[in-house]
Design a protein around this nucleic acid. Structure first.
Lengths: 230, 230
DNA sequence: ACAAGTATGTTGTAAAAACAACGAAACAAA
DNA sequence: TTTGTTTCGTTGTTTTTACAACATACTTGT
């Protein structure tokens, strides 16, 4: 069972997390006193948040490993995300009162979690606690970052066939790199998983495109050909 | 060409937008004075933001119609979104310095736009301007909302075939409705577009599932069957 | 009621993807 | 080096999807 965990959080750890980035160890006690987080420990396979709940706090993994699980109408389970120390969860729901959790959060290993009430994060308290601004900035940045990643992935996946998905992804990577010559952070299987297609079919399509002169590649290095072919 | 638009914005309009929701007309002058928006008018087909830019302001459409356009490596254009009065754009980029715009924003009709510097939105000014909190709350809520919508769509689209995409979507709608009997907000063509599949193939799959006893439907009304069939 | 237009279901065919199975190359460990 | 493992390309088969074409039912405007 879960217990009200002791607040054994190192400031050195906290200041490196996405949420508390930019605050110094000296500032953290004040900030923490103000946002008043609660701490809880969870046993392996224990539920942290249940699908259908209306949450008002965001969570941060302090130690262990936490999974986001989705269960459909017929009870089929699907692991949406794997979270580790420093990762934040529930932030998409906590600021939307009345929006019920579509997922469950479960401890994949014995884990410690920090929960912060959404109102405490947004309400401006004493003027001494101006670190709030930084916190909110970090939160907005995280949300925006997640948003961009989702939009980008969606834009590839909305293409109707494997070739177009590939071209969309590679075009995007080329843009990121600022060059028609670039490296991708995936191997073939990972790329196929990311684009939600079959690996061998994808590999096949890549080679066809190479044979047609659209691009060349070598392992994870790609080169897009923009010039007109004769 | 664009002109520095006159600040002809009605408070009645503003207080109803997602961004300024929750502030009264009386509070708006103070808030606007504090966040110091700039106003610009754009001619039809004029570029508002260019792909590759590093923006630090978010935009809000005051009048007209604005489109988000994506252009790939080979110059193929794709309309990502259609924005109308009250809609916000650029919020996913403005809070991420260094993140270059992947899209362009263009006026599809003569349009008026309000731009607000991201720092002005986050920095706490005089204590008089506590409406800031509300603004930031709205912004976070909008970002979270968009996030949820994207995640949900992605979770349907990542399924490998039409049947599973349909089941994922319908299961999700059933959950929203809190019932195995529910209405969807799409006709067949719209649903096919949303799930990125062919309409007739989708229609076919729906009927197959009906014949197999998985569900029944009538136009936009659906009924999922969870019971075990004999 | 009537006509025109739209939405939905249905079918057959061609194209594309998933799947399975395998060989070669690259890589890592003993 | 040798061995075992992973990655990647390749091929053939089966399943699924896209596409086109059309029939029917429903909607809307007159």
């Amino acid at each position: 069972m879960s217990t009200a965990g002791s607040a054994q959080v190192s400031y050195a750890f906290l200041k490196k997390t996405a949420l508390f980035r930019g605050t110094t160890e000296a500032e953290l006690p004040t900030l923490l006193g103000c946002i008043a987080p609660s701490y809880r420990d969870f046993a392996k396979n224990e539920m942290i948040l249940h699908q259908g709940e209306d949450i008002t706090s965001i969570g941060m993994v302090l130690s262990g490993r936490v999974q986001i699980i989705e269960e459909d109408f017929w009870g089929n389970r699907n692991i949406i995300a794997d979270l580790w120390a420093g990762d934040v969860f529930g932030e998409s729901y906590a600021f939307l009162p009345g929006e019920l959790l579509r997922v469950s959060v479960i401890a994949a290993e014995p884990s410690a979690v920090m929960m912060i009430d959404a109102r405490h994060m947004l309400e401006i308290c004493s003027s001494a606690c101006r670190f709030h601004t930084r916190l909110v900035q970090n939160l907005l940045a995280e949300s925006a970052k997640k948003n961009l990643a989702l939009t980008r992935k969606l834009s590839h996946m909305s293409k109707r066939n494997t070739r177009e998905k590939l071209l969309s992804y590679l075009s995007s990577q080329s843009l990121s790199a600022g060059s028609d010559l670039f490296e991708i952070p995936f191997n073939r299987q990972q790329l196929a998983d990311y684009l939600c297609v079959d690996r061998s079919a994808m590999s096949n399509e890549l080679c066809k495109m190479r044979d047609e002169g659209l691009l060349t590649f070598e392992r994870s290095s790609f080169h897009l050909m923009g010039e007109i072919k004769i």
